[in-house]
Design a binder for these strands. Structure first.
Length: 663
DNA sequence: TTAGGGTTAG
């Protein structure tokens, strides 16, 4: 006897077990062979899958089907294949089931009997199905299509439809799979799941969800595999609400406790949707975890900018004696890049080399390029890039973005051309980096060319990041009207898109236009945030436009309800002070919710020196040194202020005080 | 028929 312990929800005493193909499972008083029962259950409109529950995450687990006593009573005794060997024994609320050799023998004999009774027709169908399954397994679309034609000619389309759906789905020809499924409504969860899985794998989450609904509408219930696929789909489109409902269903069916794959899919779904707290919560409750589960969580943290947290998990995972593989390294390298952890990144690089993981792994190689580029070690990024076995658009993009980000825009543009010369077409990411590079160096002609290409390829509107980079490029190059035109043509825009345009107007000193934009974005349900606030104040400061700056400050705090932060206060105090409006600057400081900040007082003090205001200057100085006795700059400025006002004694006094406090 | 990886905006 081949025995294995399954963890399961308390075994429902009123149910019987039903064995699936392959292994015989004795998990109740009576067992049936699933294949023998299916026709009967269909006839009686008992939904076999609705009743099924999976006891384990093991690949070769049987799928017992639980029936209520009433439903079991409807099953004719003739389909009864064997009696169970033993009752499951409860240990600590878990149950122990056994797979038996006797069961396998039974299944074999059933197959033999089936074969001997099979007519010529059904044996032809069986062999078609078997070959189709083989095509699916080896992704042999060509052979699968030929077979499809044969089957059509032989008139067995209906009988083979499930296998055809699965074959097309596995081979990635989803339209064909869908077409067949729509023509021949399937009763087979496996075929539905294959199609749903196909959509999920291609990132077509919406289609996967559609078919998930359709499948249930047809009276079929998803199994653990379907759930895993649909969770992936939810993650890919950020459908956290739907994912949460699926989670409830999975928990209700008790599938989570023993199925690490399902648990991982759940962690990944929440992580991809950015619900990291929830992902962590699910993760901690799992009965078992492996390196994939950990990686799903780590990736979640990486993708949502929590590099430090990702690192914590990475360390913790190893404390639990689980060791990273190429995929874990790829995502942790991204975290190293994000949080500029060059040392850690280099150590991981060594480890990767030691394990020989880099040889044919372009994803891992690109992650290394990214890490070095982000950390500003462009030579190493370049070196790593040069050693890649081959390059794709992502590895090029990582390098190009690295050069752009570190101000080497000409180099970025050169590589952009080189990439194309090697026959690789840019994608939205590459275009975005290029627009950023054009913006940084004011290369308007080049930027326009890229704009043309983006339009020609129909990419405009496909990525809000790209759209924003385009608006920003025109704004930074000083053609704000063009930036506005682009923005107007966009179907969707967010705070960042508006921010790029508003910053453009502010930098050109077009205050009225900037305000119109603020109003328009508010009409679209978007409120200006801290970054927009800063860009407006900085622009005014840069242009020396005091009144405008003061007006923006009042407008944003009072009308748009943005709470100014310290940077905004410092900026406005500096702006007013430098323009000689010491009284206004003092009023802003007095109205500040938190005045104990050295930078604000320093800005005021500097303005007082500029305008020779010893009275307010002394006041600012006292606050500044109260916060930091060793504020050398404050002593120097104050002494200078007194000296220029011919208050020599006071100047000397401050100097002495400064030296004393320095010691 | 099932789980994890690399590049993008103000």
């Amino acid at each position: 006897m081949n025995e294995r312990t399954w963890m399961a929800k308390p075994y429902p005493s009123e149910c019987i077990g039903l064995a699936d193909e392959g292994h015989h499972l004795s998990c109740g008083k009576v067992s049936y062979h699933r294949r023998c029962l299916e026709p009967f259950l269909h006839e009686k409109r008992i939904n076999i899958n609705r009743l099924s529950g999976k006891l384990s995450g093991y690949k070769d687990a049987s799928k017992p089907i639980f029936l209520s006593k009433e439903e079991a009573a409807k099953i004719p005794a003739s389909t009864l294949k064997t009696n169970a060997i033993k009752e499951p024994a409860s240990v600590n609320g878990l149950f122990k089931f056994s797979t038996t050799d006797q069961g396998s023998q039974l299944n074999q004999s059933v197959r033999k009997a089936d074969k001997s009774h099979a007519s010529g027709k059904s044996s032809r169908i069986s062999s078609y199905v078997a070959v189709l399954r083989n095509c699916a397994k080896h992704r042999d679309l060509h052979k699968g299509r030929l077979l499809h034609e044969d089957i059509m000619k032989a008139g067995f389309l209906e009988e083979c439809s499930d296998a055809l759906v699965t074959m097309y789905a596995k081979c990635g020809l989803l339209t064909k799979a869908k077409e067949i499924l729509n023509t021949y409504p399937s009763r087979d969860v496996l075929s539905w799941t294959a199609l749903i899985s196909g959509y999920a794998q291609k990132g077509l989450g919406k289609d996967a969800l559609d078919y998930f609904e359709k499948m249930q509408g047809a009276g079929l219930s998803p199994d653990a595999v379907t759930f895993a696929c649909i969770l992936k789909a939810c993650g890919s489109i950020g459908a956290a609400d739907k994912g949460e409902r699926i989670h409830d269903e999975i928990a209700y069916q008790g599938l989570l406790e023993s199925d690490v794959v399902l648990g991982t899919a759940l962690v990944d779904m929440y992580a991809k949707c950015g619900a990291l707290g929830k992902a962590q919560q699910v993760f901690q409750k799992l009965f078992s975890r492996n390196v994939i589960t950990w990686s799903a969580l780590i990736t979640g943290y990486c993708q949502h900018g929590e590099g430090a947290k990702a690192f914590e998990c990475y360390e913790q995972m190893q404390c639990e004696n689980l060791f990273p593989d190429a995929k874990t390294y790829a995502c942790i390298l991204k975290a190293c890049g994000d949080i500029r952890e060059l040392d850690k990144g280099e150590k991981i690089h060594d480890e990767i080399l030691r394990q020989g993981l880099l040889d044919n792994d372009i994803v891992l190689g690109t992650a290394l390029v990214y890490m070095y580029a982000q950390c500003g070690v462009l030579i190493k990024a370049q070196e790593t890039f040069n050693r890649l076995p081959y390059r794709d658009v992502t590895s090029w993009s990582a390098l190009i973005e690295g050069y752009t980000q570190h101000g080497q825009c000409e180099k970025a543009m050169e590589y952009f051309e080189q990439m194309r010369a090697e026959g690789i077409s840019p994608n939205v990411v590459t275009f975005t980096s290029m627009l950023k590079a054009c913006a940084a160096v004011g290369a308007i002609a080049k930027g326009e060319k890229i704009h043309d290409e983006i339009s020609k390829e129909g990419l405009l509107g496909s990525s809000i990041l790209l759209d924003t980079a385009l608006v920003d490029m025109y704004a930074k190059c000083g053609v704000v009207s063009r930036a506005h035109k682009v923005l107007n043509g966009l179907y969707s825009r967010d705070i960042s898109t508006w921010a790029a345009l508003i910053a453009g107007y502010a930098q050109q000193g077009h205050c009225e236009q900037a305000i119109i934009c603020l109003e328009q974005m508010q009409e679209e349900g978007l409120s200006p945030d801290h970054t927009i606030f800063s860009s407006l104040l900085n622009a005014c400061s840069h242009l020396g436009r005091v009144d405008e700056g003061h007006m923006y400050f009042a407008l944003l705090t009072k009308r748009f309800g943005v709470k100014p932060d310290l940077e905004h206060y410092t900026c406005i105090v500096d702006l007013l002070g430098r323009a000689g409006h010491i009284d206004k600057a003092v009023r802003v400081i007095q109205e500040m919710p938190y005045s104990n900040n050295i930078e604000v007082w320093s800005a005021l003090l500097a303005a007082c020196r500029q305008w020779g205001n010893t009275y307010i200057g002394k006041w600012a100085f006292e606050h500044a040194v109260q916060l930091d006795k060793k504020n050398t700059a404050a002593y120097v400025i104050m002494a200078d202020l007194y000296a220029s006002a011919a208050m020599r004694e006071d100047a000397k006094g401050i100097q002495v005080l400064g030296v004393e406090n320095e010691a």
